[in-house]
Amino acid sequence: MIKLDQFLKLLGIVQTGGQAKHLIVDGAVKVNGILETRRGRKLVTGDKITIENQTFEVGELNE
């Protein structure tokens, strides 16, 4: 399990937690197709994160 803001940092989409917070609060992130505004949202393997028409699946980085 990983938090949404940590996942964004791990992917390199943002460099800091502050940047992640702004991206999420501004409505630029969807989790499983639903707008997510909580940066502490806990993600599990298989969750799909969409940012600017790019989709990433939790767990991809471990494969």
Rank of each mutant, 00 (worst) to 15 (best):
residue 25 V to P: 01
residue 31 V to Q: 08
residue 44 V to Y: 11
residue 31 V to I: 07
residue 21 K to T: 04
residue 48 K to C: 10
residue 53 N to V: 02
residue 26 D to Y: 09
residue 23 L to A: 03
residue 35 L to E: 11
residue 40 G to P: 03
residue 19 Q to V: 00
residue 48 K to A: 15
residue 22 H to Y: 15
residue 40 G to M: 06
residue 43 L to M: 12
residue 23 L to I: 05
residue 27 G to R: 14
residue 24 I to Y: 07
residue 46 G to N: 10
residue 38 R to I: 00
residue 54 Q to P: 00
residue 25 V to K: 14
residue 54 Q to E: 14
residue 55 T to I: 08
residue 56 F to G: 00
residue 38 R to L: 04
residue 55 T to V: 10
residue 19 Q to N: 10
residue 19 Q to T: 03
residue 41 R to N: 10
residue 23 L to W: 03
residue 52 E to R: 15
residue 40 G to H: 06
residue 45 T to M: 11
residue 51 I to K: 14
residue 50 T to K: 05
residue 23 L to Q: 09
residue 27 G to I: 03
residue 30 K to S: 15
residue 43 L to W: 14
residue 34 I to V: 14
residue 55 T to M: 10
residue 20 A to N: 13
residue 46 G to I: 02
residue 49 I to V: 14
residue 37 T to D: 12
residue 23 L to P: 01
residue 31 V to F: 03
residue 23 L to V: 02
residue 40 G to I: 01
residue 29 V to A: 02
residue 55 T to E: 13
residue 44 V to M: 13
residue 29 V to W: 01
residue 55 T to S: 15
residue 24 I to P: 00
residue 50 T to S: 15
residue 42 K to P: 00
residue 49 I to T: 06
residue 56 F to M: 01
residue 40 G to K: 11
residue 20 A to I: 09
residue 47 D to P: 01
residue 33 G to C: 05
residue 36 E to Q: 15
residue 52 E to P: 04
residue 53 N to H: 10
residue 22 H to V: 15
residue 21 K to E: 12
residue 38 R to F: 00
residue 57 E to R: 13
residue 21 K to C: 03
residue 25 V to D: 13
residue 35 L to R: 07
residue 22 H to F: 14
residue 46 G to C: 06
residue 24 I to C: 09
residue 25 V to R: 13
residue 30 K to L: 14
residue 52 E to V: 10
residue 35 L to F: 08
residue 24 I to S: 07
residue 45 T to L: 13
residue 54 Q to G: 00
residue 55 T to G: 10
residue 32 N to C: 03
residue 33 G to K: 02
residue 43 L to P: 03
residue 44 V to K: 15
residue 45 T to P: 12
residue 50 T to M: 08
residue 30 K to V: 02
residue 52 E to M: 13
residue 57 E to Y: 01
residue 24 I to D: 01
residue 48 K to W: 06
residue 41 R to A: 11
residue 36 E to R: 12
residue 51 I to C: 10
residue 35 L to T: 07
residue 56 F to D: 02
residue 43 L to E: 12
residue 31 V to A: 05
residue 54 Q to I: 08
residue 31 V to E: 07
residue 34 I to N: 06
residue 23 L to Y: 10
residue 52 E to D: 15
residue 28 A to D: 11
residue 19 Q to A: 09
residue 48 K to H: 10
residue 51 I to N: 12
residue 48 K to Q: 15
residue 49 I to F: 09
residue 19 Q to D: 14
residue 30 K to D: 07
residue 43 L to K: 13
residue 53 N to S: 14
residue 24 I to T: 03
residue 21 K to M: 08
residue 31 V to R: 09
residue 52 E to K: 15
residue 52 E to T: 12
residue 47 D to K: 04
residue 25 V to I: 13
